[in-house]
């Protein structure tokens, strides 16, 4: 039985009076790809920020474990690449070297992952000299080069056009199959969530888990296959249910 790479228990996160995450509990298996979906403002990104240590916890537990080595490192791919504009692509990756990894080992890893995402030839370029898709790939390589226990991805393809995003999804799945990293992937795109994940966690408007579904579809997934369409329509039903509950809540408050 696989161990848990991520453990979240009774997690609560408040921003002042506003509760963003409300008693969230789940565990993520090692080497799995879990997608987290929900509407804008439901706390998806906050959940990743809490796991990454960017945001503090109000109460509960949010921790990262790894059985095969002592590393609890986290790689984070953000919505925008967040590269240092004054450093070259290679320097950006060298910059995040963990303290327990020597420079030589890290340099080798940087080249390895730059090659994996197809950016080895442009590693001496500055970010502005690359396209949006290439910059995002550099962000993915930066997250991978520290060989993290868990890779957090926060709507990494939402700023890209659909053709580029489609290519990036394929590339991401190839890297995932190659590296066996545990991935926690946040998106608001339900189709993307079903296409990528082997588990789907849906958050409601109050930052609570509304549904937790296993996606048992064969890979590579074809969006036009009957199984995919059935599963996707099931997800849409969950969404409709969530929206009707929300509508009732708003009606009770006298709001439309």
């Amino acid at each position: 039985m696989k161990t848990s790479a991520v453990k979240v228990k009774d997690l609560v996160k408040n921003f002042g009076e506003l509760r963003v995450l409300d008693n969230v509990s789940f565990e993520v298996e090692e080497s799995s790809l879990t997608t987290i979906v929900g509407f804008s403002g439901c706390g998806k990104s906050t959940l990743l920020n809490v796991l990454a240590g960017i945001e503090s916890i109000t109460s509960g537990i949010a921790e990262v474990n790894c059985s095969n080595d002592s590393s609890t490192r986290l790689g984070y791919v953000f919505q925008s690449p967040r590269l240092l504009p004054w450093q070259t692509i290679e320097q950006n990756l060298l910059f995040v070297r963990p303290n327990d990894i020597d420079e030589e080992t890290h340099s080798k890893r940087v080249l390895k992952y730059l090659e994996m995402v197809g950016l080895k030839n442009v590693r001496h370029k500055f970010p502005y000299q690359l396209s949006g898709g290439m910059q995002q790939r550099a962000g993915i390589a930066r997250a991978l080069c520290i060989e993290p226990a868990v890779l957090l991805m926060d709507e990494p393809f939402s700023h890209l056009d659909e053709i580029t995003a489609g290519g990036m999804r394929e590339e991401m799945l190839r890297i995932w199959e190659e590296t066996h990293r545990t991935i926690l992937f946040v998106t608001h795109d339900m189709q993307e969530a079903v296409e990528l994940g082997d588990r789907l966690i849906m958050l409601d408007y109050h930052g609570r888990i509304f549904a937790d579904l296993k996606i048992d579809l064969p890979r590579p997934r074809n969006l036009t296959e009957r199984e995919f369409i059935y599963f996707y329509s099931d997800i849409l039903q969950h969404l409709q249910k969530m929206q009707s509950i929300r509508a009732e809540e708003l009606a009770e408050l006298g709001l439309n």
């Binding site: 990454a52 240590g53 960017i54 490192r73 986290l74 984070y76 953000f78 910059f95 995040v96």
Partner: peptide, 25 residues
Amino acid sequence: KDILDMTQAYKVGKWKVIKNVIMPS
């Protein structure tokens, strides 16, 4: 702030952040 958050997520040391992020910006 987004870049500073990134350095926090990757647990980059304080001096490295001052030298590579704060001073150049």
